[in-house]
Amino acid sequence: MDLLISVGLPLSLAIIMLSLGIGLELADFRRVLTRGYPFAIGALCQVVLLPVAAFATVALFALPPEIAVGFMILSFCPGGVTSNILSKLAKGDVALSVSLTAVISLLSMLTVPFLAAWSINYFMGDNAPEVSITGLAIAMFLITTLPVAIGVSIRHFAIEFANRIEPGLSKLATTLFVLVVLAALAGNWQLFVDNLGIMGAGLITLNLGLLLIGLGLARVANLSWNEAKTVSIETGIQNSTLGITLAALITGTESGFSPLALPSAVYGITMYAVALPFILWFRRR
């Protein structure tokens, strides 16, 4: 189990992030400058409103400290490949979705370590494990930023090769995502069973609230309908694999998968059930 967590989990996330990078082009980053306003609204939702909503949900449901930290860690994670796919299915603005995912994923190397350290100290107090912000930042760079950068470079310098490997890499990333979620659940099965009711209700409430908040703010900001759909999805869909990996990095591998990973693991399942009605509604409008 320790080998799976210390080697397999970071490697799986790196492959998932590489698959994200393979699908990106430099134009996806330049687009931020030309479409600054919609991007700014989406970034505001992801970086600011999402953690605030998670904190409110934790307080509303009076979640246990370790589960509360898991909620907050999940809220700090940017959207992943899944949000791009769902934006495409919803007939949203895929270019905006890709731009948000790309830039926020790269910025997470700077934002997530500090926010994660604060959450652990705030909710767990004297029981909080020691967190190295520098160590987390380096790990985030190696398993998120670097693979994305490598993927973008491959597409830029060898586009035909990138097109050939992208389908297989995407399938591998999906398979690894499923395995990581199942392993995290199995490693905390009793805690999962004991907290499923309150944790499931909290995750569904948070997910539903975020989709609506993103949509509402985008419409108030007078974005187009396609842009609003994308902001909603980018706000409501997080990279749960990153949440599971962060939990493992924070607590180490001595006792198997960390309880801090449980909200991200459960969310990896519930987010599809919550998002599906929205996707169907978005497709019809």
Rank of each mutant, 00 (worst) to 15 (best):
S105M: 10
G125P: 15
W118Y: 04
V180P: 00
S119M: 07
F123H: 02
L172R: 11
G151L: 06
I120P: 02
V103T: 03
A162Y: 05
S153M: 13
A116C: 11
A139I: 03
G187S: 09
L107F: 05
K171T: 13
V152H: 11
A137H: 05
P167T: 12
N195F: 05
M140S: 00
P113D: 03
T145I: 05
L115R: 13
L110I: 09
N127Y: 10
T144K: 10
I150N: 02
E166S: 12
A162P: 07
L115I: 11
F114P: 14
A102F: 06
A137W: 01
A102T: 13
D194E: 10
N188F: 02
P129K: 14
L107D: 05
A162N: 08
L106H: 00
K171C: 06
L179F: 09
V152Q: 10
A128Y: 12
L146S: 08
V98I: 09
T134I: 10
M140V: 00
H156Y: 13
K91P: 12
G197L: 09
A149H: 15
L176C: 09
T175M: 08
V181M: 08
V103H: 01
M109Q: 00
Y122L: 07
N163T: 15
A173M: 04
L136V: 14
I138G: 03
L107E: 07
S105P: 15
T144D: 12
V131I: 14
L96C: 02
G135Q: 06
V152F: 06
L142V: 13
L142K: 13
G200S: 09
T175P: 13
I165K: 08
G92N: 09
S97D: 02
I154P: 15
M199R: 06
I165A: 05
D126P: 04
I104M: 03
W118H: 03
T111P: 08
A139Y: 02
L100G: 10
G200P: 11
F123G: 01
T174D: 06
P113A: 04
V98Q: 01
M140R: 00
A186Y: 13
L115A: 08
A128H: 14
I150S: 03
P113E: 03
L96D: 02
